[in-house]
Design a protein around this nucleic acid. Sequence first.
DNA 1: TTGTATGCGTTATCAG
DNA 2: CTGATAACGCATACAA
Lengths: 361, 361
Amino acid sequence: MGARRATISDVAREAGVSPSTASVVFSGKTPVSTQTRARVLAAAERLGYSGPDPRAASLRTGRSGIVGVVFEEHLGDTFLDPVKTVMMDGLADAVAPLGAGLLLLRDHDPAGVGASLTTAPLDAAVLIGCSGMLRESLSVVHTRGIPVVVIEGDAGADVPRIDLDNREAQRQAASHLRSLGHERVVVLSLPIRTDWVPGWVPETAGIEIDVTRERRDGARDVFPAAPVYAAAASSIDEGLAAGRALLADPATRPTAVIAQSDLLAAGVIRAAEEAGLDVPRDLSVTGFDGIEVDGLAPYELTTLVQPAAEKGRAAGAAVAAMLDGRDAASIRFTCAFREGNTSALAPGAAPPASGPVDSGG
Amino acid sequence: MGARRATISDVAREAGVSPSTASVVFSGKTPVSTQTRARVLAAAERLGYSGPDPRAASLRTGRSGIVGVVFEEHLGDTFLDPVKTVMMDGLADAVAPLGAGLLLLRDHDPAGVGASLTTAPLDAAVLIGCSGMLRESLSVVHTRGIPVVVIEGDAGADVPRIDLDNREAQRQAASHLRSLGHERVVVLSLPIRTDWVPGWVPETAGIEIDVTRERRDGARDVFPAAPVYAAAASSIDEGLAAGRALLADPATRPTAVIAQSDLLAAGVIRAAEEAGLDVPRDLSVTGFDGIEVDGLAPYELTTLVQPAAEKGRAAGAAVAAMLDGRDAASIRFTCAFREGNTSALAPGAAPPASGPVDSGG
DNA sequence: TTGTATGCGTTATCAG
DNA sequence: CTGATAACGCATACAA
């Protein structure tokens, strides 16, 4: 093997054309005669040339074809969440036409080593739910002059933002429960801050995580006095543990649980089964997300279906727009209420006059 | 807003030093006097210079700090599998010290658009379980002269390979069951090829997917006549559906199911519960992977714990070695057998003489 | 349709 | 410790 890789100039020389002609053969930006193209391709073949060096090309064009996706947690934790997974899929779809790929970046880079917002050759960045380091990440990206989009976070007016109307959505589920006659309702929430230990949330406690707060507010719009129990994470096991705590005392047991995620809801259902309660006869449970919870059949959650893939695609579209010099608008998606078989008339309640579903607030 | 971003030369000029000195301040590759450093940093601050342009730097150094990870499926499908998720985490950890990040690449790029092995500025590539397009991907990477590592796949002798001794592992679980007196055993396998429809696998059918075949062979080493039922995917729901089929007829019902993944095993357990069978009294079930199956408590699967994170880290280490000019060896990991509470003495069998666990084969 | 010239922003090398 | 110089490999404006 030669000491050095062939460059486009080598190919051009071998083919007897100029470098620019050879370049054009590969980029296709300008018409080239069939003959010339064939000669160049043949020369490339002979020299084992596999196309323009992306590094050099990106310096020249100013585009690397890479969109950074910044997470605040470990990848494993992130992808455990089906919603994020689906969202990533949507995002990947949306940036593909751009000729771009997704670079996984961790917000909290332990040693300051590793690819980061500052050192990676990014065309754009997507920040996902980065509540904490958000400001820092933003300033980095801003001084680098890189277009940025935020999903589920607030980065100020000049940064396009893709999110959900969590409050309105959660309000719908709560209204649904109220119309079914429920009064003793508890909210099983996502963590209220990082490193949260599962337990009741005091009224005086501030809720640092936006999603958690917004959904709680939605529930409170309908049930102002509903207590909030926050889990440590969104998983069936966490939901199960919380459910046990919630259902432990028959005297104070709620007739409905508003869970802030489908996984938590699934856990509550398991806890109810354990406690010998029938869902939805003895206990109604609502979820949030609208994912397929593997293994939950035959239950079909009453839940809010969030357009996860759409969110990803919207973020991709926003990136595309900004890269194109246009500016991108923020988008707030709404969730679709879906009634499953995990919610029913409150025990002892009279049927509502106007049917079980009432999404008025 | 200047018309143009500041470059390192601008900073150098502003600071009254040479470009090379300014460069060194940022790279830290050579000692610089405290004074000079301060002047340069101050100048950078004034000009809003956020550090060297990664594109230009990568052209010069030949390193982009990007490791491509090639999947054969949609991201969503990939990350649904907890094992892959954990593996990615290990991989991310291992490449971070390299100053590198992970670029998600899809093997099967529909339109030929999108970042790809050919067009992305990669330092190295990791191919994951790419059975189909493997050869093609390899040749691309090879002519580009990019170091490559394969996880769960065979890319020939000169490509480092990280995988599992699936056959030996599965043999252990099978031996365990045999020592418990099981004789009517069925293998619930992963798909035998892409687009597989769930069902019994005829003896004449070729098993295209290596992992599936190797695990089946391990089971067959102990139970040569065990029939194989292949699911369409690795999930609880698929396991449930398969379990129903497997347990439908009391006359031919197996006393043990060797599932090729923990998720499938969890599904079989649900199917058993549905059928009024007690696990492990009436039916033993073994899994494969050793993940935490969310919501499976109080069951703890008897399973093979595979070192998923280690696999990722090993791949990262191999990449690091190759980037360093050393060559990387292939590694075959072994699984640890873990006895949970989902396997027990076969109905009507006498206790074994030598204790329940026997890994001889 | 093809060729010529130029610079993208950096960093390695080497001399001072 | 600092500075001058020379690539790195390519894509574009422009001329032919």
